[in-house]
Design a protein around this nucleic acid. Structure first.
Lengths: 348, 348
DNA sequence: TTGTACGCGTTATCAG
DNA sequence: CTGATAACGCGTACAA
């Protein structure tokens, strides 16, 4: 395996009858080269399938065309769709991406981050596992441009791209209140996460404004498996809510499963607003009304922002908050006052 | 930004009062070093936060602890879950992964692959976009260990890890036949893909064996959006099937949406078998009977296989076929002969 | 255009 | 057996 060594710049130079410097110049187009010489070089490059070794180029130039991306987990589609977008942007800009997962563990996050530095990446995109963000000092000390995405409430020492969670969740609550619902249950993954707290606060504020007191809250953890059981238990012990807001994609799934298993009809018995917007929400029966996070925009902004920093922009750090959008579908309906559980809104 | 250069091995050597060679030896533990000297070195390493530059290390040693992963798309959860598994294995083995997407396009696949070579990766995991696999010659020429995952029927020049699609899909068909269904519709993404063809063949063979002729077939393309419309159209023009098998996760979603919009009940009017097994299939109403692909196993095998090749194993190339597993849930039910559309199986 | 020093670890060779 | 010296890998950048 792998016995053939790739051609080096010296071999190309030899074949083209020029110096290595000329090959480098011709290939990268950084200096003018006689057309005739350029042709010879390109012939040699093609013949030998020459391609500069990135390790060598990076070592000498001090410029790495790599960006490291560290996410809490690769099992969550929200994170992977962000990666998809970043990869596309990176590709367009001639960068490659190194992807690492923290396995939802701050210790691992730290270890991974440290390991990533050995690449001397041009920049780092990080989605912290937790908003205590213990990796921050490491990141600071490394003096590598980085941008924080999602999850953090604020990050004074760096750029932050996040969603206006408060407003987005408030819109969901407002929607339900307008439909006449007064008995709301919020199913959250974990309030230890700043973005989840913001969502909760948004809903809570909306309810308090409406003069109906804070809604019920249930925290169920980060994985889908646990959600369903906990919710079923909760429902057995409390008066039934007329509407539920799930604060993440996994909790949305858990709520769907729990309602199904409890025999509660959506939206007949309970209205449901989900979070994040995936194909399965559109395919579900009924299709789920959901808060769509602007993933595409987030990824794009994160990339642009990081590139500016890499290119030396020293403008003050900024916290960008992007608007989420409530996608109205058929899982939410007016509170039925009598036996009316028909739903006549058109599907979207 | 990024003004502070990381400490070099020479600075560490100076601080510890030893040679750079000793630092290297002490850090990597490849040669014996007096405990006393080792302590001094480690003190200096810690104080300066020294970490060997991968580019330099790789350049000199010729060994790269990077594996490149090239997938058709990062939007498909099947591919991203594979990446999740590979990342975990890589991390454990001290490797990092570079992730690239071909954007479902063979031209891009080629370009990306070429670009990836510039890293001189220790190995490559590739999920080809198409089974014409035009990137194969490039891969061969590069003499880099690689393993092909999924999608290809056979790959004589390399190791292949795939699912026994024929058997898995046949099991799905058998299940439906045993329930009494005779009018089957298979919804495929594209028969241009070898793995999809294998699934189709498995179902077809099963039906022919049962003496009921080939089932109906509908090809709907690779994205979720198109599926639903095409299927609704098809249903309008053909006699209604009593059972549908969807051959990918996206087509499963499309079928679910189409059936819902057509007003057909699952499994009352139509039984449904989906493909791939995700949380949303368990959360759906009814939960979807599905062919589960052994993603965990595939990723694990792919990694192990690649590592063996990287370490120089020259055993003949092997094609590993892993068994898929039919997850029985509530979207499939016995063919109702009269007005019977009740379903009494226990949920799984 | 060219020569060549250089970046930074690794490793083979050599000295103690 | 420990530790030091120096060559080396390969592309880049600057002086000539």
């Amino acid at each position: 395996m792998a016995v053939l060594k790739p051609a080096s710049i010296r071999e190309v130079a030899a074949r083209a009858g020029v110096s290595v410097a000329t090959v480098s110049n011709a290939v990268r187009g950084r200096k003018r080269v006689t057309p005739e010489v350029a042709a010879r070089v390109h012939e040699a490059v093609a013949a030998l399938h020459y391609q500069a070794d990135r390790a060598a180029a990076q070592l000498r130039s001090g410029k790495a065309r790599v960006v490291a991306i560290l996410v809490p987990s690769l099992e969550n589609p929200f994170f992977t769709s962000l990666i998809a977008i970043l990869e596309r942007r990176a590709q367009a800009a001639g960068y490659d991406i190194i992807v690492a997962s923290a396995g939802d563990d701050v210790g691992t996050e730290r270890t991974r981050l440290l390991a990533l530095f050995s690449w001397r990446p041009a920049g780092i995109v990080i989605l912290p596992c937790s908003d205590t963000f213990p990796s921050r000092p490491i990141l600071e000390a490394a003096h590598v441009p980085y941008v924080v995405v999602d999850r953090l409430a604020d990050e004074p020492g760096a750029d932050l791209i996040a969603v206006d969670n408060h407003a987005a969740a408030a819109a969901a609550a407002h929607h339900l209140l307008a439909l006449g619902h007064r008995r709301l249950l919020v199913v959250a993954s974990s309030l230890a996460l700043a973005n989840i707290r913001e969502r909760w606060d948004g809903i809570r504020a909306q309810c308090l404004d409406a003069g109906i007191g804070a809604p019920e809250l249930l925290e169920v953890g980060l994985t889908f498996e646990t959600v369903s059981g906990e919710l079923e238990q909760w429902l057995g012990r409390h008066e039934r809510p007329t509407a539920i807001i799930a604060l993440t994609n996994f909790t949305t799934l858990g709520v769907m499963a729990a309602l199904r298993d409890t025999g509660l009809a959506v939206p007949g018995d309970v209205s449901l607003v989900g979070y994040d917007d995936y194909a399965w929400m559109r395919a579900a029966s009924p299709p789920i009304t959901a808060v769509r996070q602007p993933v595409e925009l987030m990824g794009g902004q994160a990339w642009s922002c990081l590139m500016r920093r890499i290119e030396g922009d020293t403008a003050p750090f900024q916290s960008i908050r992007l608007a989420g959008e409530l996608q109205l579908r058929l899982s939410t309906a007016p509170l039925r006052t009598r036996g009316n559980n028909r739903n006549h809104r058109k599907k979207t």
